[in-house]
Amino acid sequence: MKKYNAYLIDLDGTIYRGSDTIDSGVRFVKRLQEKNIPYLFLTNNTTRTPEMVVAKLKGHGIETDVNHIYTPVLAAKTYLKEQNLTTTKIPVYLIGEQGLINGFLSDPRFYLDAQNPKYVIVGMDTDLTYKKVRTACRAIRNGATFIGTNADKVLPAANEFLPGNGSQCKMIEEATGQKPIYIGKPASPIIEYALQLINKNKDEVVMVGDNYQTDIKAGMDNGLDTILTLTGVSNLEEVEKEEAQPTYIVKNMDDWKL
């Protein structure tokens, strides 16, 4: 096993599954902390603020801080600011929960505009309504750019898989004929910004996660080695059918030696 100088680590399905703790994932993070190996939690979950993620991790036995949390909301804000370097105010329409809403509206560069937004930004919303979807579709047809925070089709819960943001975005895509620009895993923006944040080169870093379609493809598509842990979405039988394989596959993160 190669020694890596930093780890990008998924949360849902790797460290916890809904309200259930994945003990091997917690022990893995504690081993990183003991050895002072840099890490960044790279989650596609946009329902929580970084502060809320820190609190949730504490409930699962991990002490960390917001400097170790990176979400598609943070990456999307950076991406949109890069696209609008000379624009002081950016009108957006938001579908999502507290993490997305607070993340954008607490930043003075962005303001909510349901009538004429420049961007429609869609994140996971368990209170999604037809009215929200209709407003988003209308804006996109009128020229707004469609941004999807992440493409996860399903989310691992305690004993089931729930519809994910990718499923929500697909509905809007079908209704408008417009594909979203995705920011979160496996898309490149979140990986590029995460590497800048930890100041590491691609060959120094490994991506850890449970979902082949998001976590592992994020690594593969962006030149990172990958560790698939079989504690969440993807199972071994499914993964073995894929043409491209993870760099490493482990039953759980107890099997990974630092």
Rank of each mutant, 00 (worst) to 15 (best):
D65C: 12
W256K: 06
Y119Q: 04
D23V: 14
D255W: 02
P186S: 10
K81W: 00
I101F: 04
I69P: 03
G166M: 06
I22N: 05
D113W: 03
E51V: 12
T21H: 00
L32N: 05
F146D: 10
R17L: 11
Y130A: 08
P91C: 10
V92R: 09
L228V: 15
M124S: 07
F161I: 07
A139N: 14
T176N: 06
N159G: 05
S19Q: 11
A244C: 08
L162S: 09
N211G: 07
A55E: 13
E242C: 13
K131L: 09
K257N: 08
T49Y: 04
V54H: 12
F28S: 12
I147N: 02
P108S: 10
I140S: 08
T229M: 10
K30F: 05
D225M: 03
F104A: 11
G184R: 05
H60V: 15
L195E: 02
N211Y: 04
A136M: 06
N252W: 03
D210A: 09
G184M: 08
P50K: 07
T149F: 07
I190Q: 12
I22K: 07
P189V: 07
T229D: 12
Y4G: 03
N252I: 12
G103F: 10
G209P: 00
T43I: 06
T14C: 09
F146C: 07
I198F: 04
Q245D: 09
P50Q: 13
T49F: 07
Y182Q: 02
E34R: 13
N211E: 09
E34T: 15
D152T: 12
Q83C: 13
L94Q: 02
N252K: 06
L85R: 13
Y182D: 07
Y182S: 02
D210Q: 10
F41S: 10
P50N: 10
I191S: 14
T78H: 07
T21Y: 02
L105P: 01
D255N: 11
K118G: 13
A194M: 13
K153H: 01
K30I: 11
G61T: 15
R17E: 15
V208S: 13
P50C: 14
Q83N: 12
L162F: 12
V29A: 11
K118E: 11
V208H: 00
V206P: 00
N5W: 00
